[in-house]
Design a binder for these strands. Structure first.
Length: 240
DNA sequence: GCGACAG
DNA sequence: ATCTTGTCGC
């Protein structure tokens, strides 16, 4: 497993140079995709989910899941190697439902706020070559002070004296979220769109919908035994 | 050397 | 991530 870790870190070092974290973000966002993975710790079964929401009210217009077995352990700093396989499978399942790629991707976890500046959001963004933001529920690396209590207030997350993300208050009085650029956008734009996605709850609608779907898919997969049918193959119908 | 450590 | 009861608040 030591070897597995060293290889993964080498892959990160190689791919990190493709990350674009200081470029203009999407001007307009017609559709945004949310990504999440649910786990069954006993069986090692995982379920990845992708949801696509449409502006301006972020209604779910498409979604898909994919289930499988975790092929990589959870190692802090190497989360993407655990979550990318189910997420890419779910992505491939949702693509046929779309007429155009989403303008923005939002995933659970960090982007460049990462020990090697290459968190899950970077890996996903670089792989799919689309604007991507990482939104995490807890800090990972760097330091920050508490932002003010009102929606929209934010403070920088500093790592080696560099701003790599923001602690952002998405609703008045709630605990902040920790966001960072994944790929092809910048911090201001990322904060702007995350706030737009948080009109009712602390977490973005993308995260909530993807989280719900991944849990549902995992439960369904655990309920209906072995591989072979459409569900265990990961083929799920999109909403509409 | 000793902890901390996204999900 | 996941395991879990009650409880506070809109």
């Amino acid at each position: 497993m030591v070897r597995q870790v060293e290889d993964a870190e080498a892959v990160q070092e190689a791919l990190r140079r493709r990350v674009r974290a200081d470029v203009p973000g999407p001007e307009a966002v017609a559709t945004v995709a949310g990504f999440d993975v649910a786990y069954d710790t006993d069986s090692d079964v995982v379920a990845g989910a992708v949801v696509v929401l449409a502006a301006p009210d972020w209604t779910v217009i498409a979604s898909a899941t994919a289930t499988g077995r975790a092929a990589f352990p959870y190692v802090p700093g190497l989360l993407s190697f655990r979550e990318m396989p189910p997420l890419l499978d779910a992505w491939n399942n949702v693509l046929p439902q779309l007429t155009a790629p989403p303008d923005l991707l939002v995933c659970d976890g960090h982007g460049i706020a990462h020990p090697r500046r290459f968190g899950l959001a970077c890996h996903l963004g670089v792989t799919l070559d689309l604007p991507t933001i990482g939104v995490a529920k807890t800090p990972f690396v760097g330091t920050h002070t508490a932002p003010g209590p009102l929606r929209g207030e934010r403070t920088p997350i500093l790592l080696d004296d560099e701003p790599v993300g923001a602690a952002l208050r998405t609703r008045d009085g709630v605990r902040e979220v920790y966001l960072s650029v994944g790929h092809r956008t910048n911090l201001d734009s990322a904060c702007r769109w995350v706030l737009d996605l948080c009109s009712r709850y602390r977490l973005p609608e993308t995260t909530r919908a993807a989280d719900h779907l991944s849990r549902t898919a995992l439960a369904a997969r655990l309920r209906s035994g072995s591989a072979g049918d459409a569900r265990s193959a990961g083929i799920t119908d999109g909403s509409r």
